[in-house]
């Protein structure tokens, strides 16, 4: 069996197996969601937070424009980086793309 087949089968298996436990929602989430459903708080609760979570929550509470700028930049940088890495992996697997004909 080729490396590509193993890669695809593994990806599919991971997708299917990891999907199974998720069709039930935890009670905690349901309650938290219901609370927010009635009154969406505009401030993140910083109690019990530490590290990066605390930093993000504080930034969210204190400077929304800076928070938005950080969100946009993080998404752009991570998106570009992951696209580059995935492209390299696909190339290594022989799935390189070039100009295609447009067939209907």
């Amino acid at each position: 069996m080729s490396f590509r087949s193993i890669f695809v089968i593994s990806a599919l298996s991971i997708m299917l197996v990891s999907a199974l436990p998720f069709f039930e929602r935890s009670e905690g989430n349901a309650i938290a969601s219901e609370k927010q459903e009635t009154a969406l708080t505009m401030k993140a609760d910083t109690n019990h937070l530490s590290g990066i979570n605390l930093f993000i929550a504080r930034l969210y509470n204190e400077d929304r424009v800076l928070y938005a700028t950080m969100v946009t930049l993080v998404m752009a940088v991570l998106g570009t980086f992951l696209a580059f890495v995935t492209d390299l992996i696909l190339k290594a697997l022989g799935l390189e793309v070039s100009r295609i004909s447009h067939r209907e």
Partner: peptide, 24 residues
């Protein structure tokens, strides 16, 4: 993304984690 984040409606940690799967 920017305008919703300014309005406080973007959960950065969730978006970050989803993006790992999404980019691939």
């Amino acid at each position: 993304c920017f305008t919703y984040a300014v309005k406080g409606r973007v959960e950065l940690v969730a978006a970050f984690i989803m993006l790992i799967g999404a980019s691939i």
